[in-house]
Amino acid sequence: MIDKSPLVEMDKGPSPVGVARRVAPTLSRPIKLRLAGVSKAFRSANGTTTLALQDINFEVREGEFVCILGPSGCGKTTLLNIIAGLDRAGCGDVLCNGRRVKGPGMDRIVMFQESVLFPWLTARKNIEIGLKSRGLSREARRVRAMDFLRLVHLTKFADAHPHELSGGMRQRVALARSLAMDPEILLMDEPFTALDAQTRWILHYELQNIWEKTGKTVVFVTHNIREAVCLADRVIVLSSRPGRIKREYKIDLPRPRDDGSVEVAALSREIMEILRDEIEKVMKEELDEGSCKECDVKCVGVTPDGRPSKTVGAG
């Protein structure tokens, strides 16, 4: 399942920065990721079925930065895991580059909320260990790892172990590692949630910068509205359980954006109004433990060539 294809632009010199951004309007770019009728149900220990995701449909085009926003417990992380191939959709299809996702693969790298650097390896080796899977020589791995450490301004800490780095630095190493793998899609699961506000603010800025330089396709999951508005081209708002797409927002604010700016605040406020209903619903549900009545969803997926695929039961 692992894509062993050599990296594009791997040997084109030391710079990891290759793709010029904003050359073509988003809609004319090819579709990188497509979700069609994705649903997912969990069966709990006492036999009740909870629908976590219901009929999720969206597309992400090349170079797009999409944020999936939703209240906690709406299944955003489940959705990301399904895209990553770490979790299986109950029904529906996930297509990455036109191919159906069957398991984890190096074309979709996930950056998690907590740093998952290997504690026994230095920052540089943490990046190199992934590049080894790409079949790079020792020297090429080293060069590329240093390039990406430079991108996140951490060359000075190349030989430091994760426990010697601050939380923000660890996440930047994780970002460098994810980018160095040159995935088709970079999946980010609330990567800055565990950080303090100042660090997050700086990393938002850096991430925008890096994204503009590298032109990566990003799917970013968060519950933080400002974060979503600050980073995304498009924000997909999920409803509370079961997670459904509630609204989509296109964010056209100029970059780099500051998550404290007036424009971001105004848009965040608008989305907040929508989300408030959802949060209230979650709280109500928690109070009278309403179980799901709509668990027998009709499942319609699509095959890689776009036709509806056969129906399977949710769960």
């Binding site: 923000g168 660090t199 700086i202 990393l203 400002r226 500051d258």
Partner: peptide
């Protein structure tokens, strides 16, 4: 959320934390 209206300079080596 930090209320700042100015952005840090581009390419500035930052040290979060």
């Amino acid at each position: 959320v930090p209320r700042k209206t100015t952005l840090p300079k581009k390419g500035l080596a930052l040290n979060p934390g």
